[in-house]
C-alpha cells in the first residue's frame, strides 16, 4: 500500500467513527438535513487535507472544530444568498420523522410522575432547542449529545472554560423553562 492510500485509510478509520457526531453538530447549527450533510462532506475534505498536521490520539475535538467552522461559514453564505427564513415557519413539523413517540417517559428520570420534562414530545424539545441562542445551543449539544468534556467544548467553541460552564447552566435553565412553557401550552390546547 503506498503512503497516500495508507494515510487515506488511517483518516477514514479515525474520522468516520465520528461521522454521527459531526452530522449532529452540523444539523443543529444549520438546521437543514441536506445542508448538514454538505457541511460534513466539506469539513471532512478539509480535515483530510490537514490530517498530517494533527497530533494526539483523539481527533474528535479537532474534527468537530472544523465542522463548526464550516457550518458557521455555510450559515453566513446562506444568509447572504437568500432571505432569512424565520425559524418558526419551518420548525414545528419539519422533523416529525425524527421525533420520538409522544409522551414517552424518560428511562433515566426518577419519580417521573412529577417530572413534566421527561414526558415532553420530541417536537417540543426541537422547538425549545431552536429557541436557544446558537452559542448556548452548540454548548449544550456538545455536552449532552456528544458527551464531551468542558475542556474539549472550550476548545471547539473557542471559549474559556468558565464561559462554557455558564453557557451550559443558562442553556439548561432556559431549556427547562421553554419546555415547561411549551408543555403547558400543549396541554391547554389539548383540553
Amino acid at each position: 500500500m503506498d503512503p497516500g492510500t495508507a494515510a487515506l485509510r488511517d483518516f477514514e478509520r479515525q474520522a468516520l467513527a465520528h461521522m454521527d457526531a459531526a452530522y449532529n453538530l452540523a444539523f443543529w447549527l444549520v438546521r437543514e438535513r441536506a445542508d448538514a450533510e454538505d457541511v460534513v462532506q466539506d469539513a471532512y475534505l478539509r480535515a483530510f487535507r490537514a490530517f498530517a498536521t494533527v497530533t494526539g490520539d483523539d481527533i474528535k475535538p479537532w474534527l468537530l472544530t472544523i465542522v463548526r467552522n464550516v457550518a458557521y461559514r455555510w450559515l453566513s453564505v446562506r444568509k447572504r444568498r437568500t432571505n432569512v427564513i424565520p425559524l418558526d415557519s419551518v420548525l414545528p413539523n419539519a422533523d416529525r420523522d425524527e421525533a420520538g413517540p409522544v409522551f414517552e417517559i424518560a428511562s433515566d428520570a426518577p419519580s417521573a410522575e412529577d417530572m413534566l420534562l421527561g414526558r415532553a414530545d420530541q417536537a417540543l424539545v426541537h422547538r425549545a432547542l431552536d429557541r436557544l441562542p446558537p452559542a448556548f445551543r452548540e454548548t449544550i449539544i456538545l455536552r449532552e449529545m456528544e458527551e464531551l468534556s468542558y475542556r474539549d467544548i472550550a476548545r471547539i467553541t473557542e471559549a474559556p472554560i468558565g464561559t462554557v460552564m455558564s453557557r451550559l447552566a443558562r442553556a439548561r435553565d432556559q431549556l427547562k423553562e421553554e419546555l415547561t412553557e411549551l408543555i403547558a401550552k400543549e396541554t391547554r390546547n389539548a383540553l
Partner: peptide, 18 residues
C-alpha cells in the same frame, strides 16, 4: 432528576445522517 430528564430528552433528539 430535572437535569437527568433533560439529558434523556436531548439524547433522543440527536440527529442521525442518512
Amino acid at each position: 432528576s430535572e437535569l437527568l430528564a433533560l439529558r434523556g430528552q436531548l439524547r433522543r433528539a440527536r440527529a442521525t445522517p442518512s
